[in-house]
Amino acid sequence: MSIANYKKALPLLRIPFSLYLMPVFWFGLSALRGPWSGGRAAAVFVVVHLLAYPASNGYNSYYDRDEDSIGGLKAPPKVTPELLHLVWLFDALAVGGAALVSGAFAGLMVLYLLVSKAYSYEGIRLKKYPLLSTAVVVVFQGAYTFLMTQVGVGNNAAALFENTNLLLAVVSTLFLCGSYPLTQVYQHQEDARRGDRTLSLRLGVRGTFIFAALGLLAGAAALGLAYWLRQEPRALLVFLLATGPVVALFGRWAWLVWHDAVAASFEWAMRMNQVSSLCLSAAFGLLVLARQLGWAGF
């Protein structure tokens, strides 16, 4: 073992790719109506996006041993034992960092990390089961992370389990349900080689895009209902304006794929991830700012 080997393994943690999941963090904050700590929010962001997600990514790469492109890496390096050492280090830092925020946040973080291991670990490997693995990913990276973020910044139980807050948590899962299969659509050969029957593989290329469209549409409808119940029409307007580029890009990609399945590529999937992450983060980040400044109608 050497420092050079750890440096070679570090890209497999895919830290930049973890940032594509930022919208759930900002969405969780944007739903808060009471006061919360900016310092704790920053700590939650670091623990979730710079420690927990990279640890999960690295663990998945350790057992998948991908030879083709994976999320955030067009040409992943060869897996070595040093990768697992980095995973355990990031796991420990995530749990330790979460404990400094609060005991409840740390407990939720431990459960998240355990479930993420079950997704990839060869003795369990939820990834082999298309419906179960999809349900686990969209719930834990969606509603669970949404609520975990709110717990981390100090949201009380009454606000946490308020009806419209729970509905917004469900919205985050619906959006993940729509977008998650798109991250698998270019990996069909690789997944089939390993025996992983992912949802996208089962649906086929065209079926993946139909499923994604239905999931995203359901999420947008549920979000509109939630904002209507919360009497926050301006928040819905911000969301619709910000997601215009996402809808346009998705429509363009779907049209290309419909005419030639080769367009279901790594490059297009990463472009979709980048644009949707930036647009949604901008929308929910603006809502956070508006509410912190006390703007009416938000």
Rank of each mutant, 00 (worst) to 15 (best):
L293P: 00
F27P: 01
G107V: 08
A269P: 01
L50M: 10
L89R: 06
A158Y: 09
L223I: 02
L113G: 06
R230S: 13
G142L: 05
G294H: 04
V95I: 15
S37H: 09
F250V: 04
Y144C: 05
L286P: 00
L199H: 00
L84Y: 11
G219Q: 08
Y121S: 04
L126M: 14
L100G: 13
A157N: 03
V47K: 10
V139T: 15
V47I: 13
N163V: 12
V110K: 05
E267F: 05
L241A: 14
F45T: 06
I70A: 01
A263E: 15
G297T: 11
S102Q: 12
F105K: 13
G215I: 10
R194T: 07
R230G: 01
G58V: 00
R125V: 03
A261F: 07
L166Q: 03
V44L: 08
F175T: 04
S37M: 04
E232G: 02
L131G: 00
A106Y: 07
L201G: 15
V47C: 12
W88I: 03
A31S: 14
V48M: 10
M272S: 13
I70P: 00
L280Y: 11
H85W: 09
D64H: 11
I3F: 14
P16A: 08
F27Q: 14
L289K: 08
W228E: 07
S277N: 09
F211H: 15
T243D: 10
L240A: 15
A169I: 03
Y63A: 01
T183I: 05
P76R: 05
P233Y: 04
L114C: 14
F90Y: 14
R271S: 01
V87Y: 13
V139L: 15
F284D: 00
D68A: 11
A296Y: 03
H188V: 01
G142N: 07
F140C: 11
W258G: 15
G215N: 12
L225T: 14
G71V: 05
Q231E: 13
A282E: 03
G107M: 06
A99P: 02
D91G: 02
V115R: 12
L229N: 12
V238C: 12
E67F: 02
G28D: 08
G142P: 06
N5F: 03
Y53F: 14
G178Q: 11
F105H: 12
A104M: 11
T198W: 02
K117M: 13
T149M: 05
A221L: 15
Y144V: 05
E190L: 03
L176I: 04
L256A: 14
V151S: 06
Q274N: 06
N57Y: 06
A269F: 07
I70T: 11
A220E: 08
Y62S: 13
A106S: 07
L240V: 10
D260Q: 10
A106P: 00
A4L: 10
L293F: 02
L113Q: 08
P23N: 13
M109R: 04
A220Y: 08
W295S: 01
L229I: 05
R65T: 06
Y227Q: 11
V46T: 09
A282P: 02
A296E: 13
W253C: 05
G71I: 01
M22V: 09
N156M: 04
I210G: 05
N57F: 08
L50P: 01
V246W: 11
R194Q: 12
V138L: 12
Y227E: 11
W88N: 02
L289G: 03
A269E: 08
A264E: 04
E162W: 04
K117T: 09
L167S: 06
L84C: 02
Q187N: 06
L83S: 03
D64Q: 10
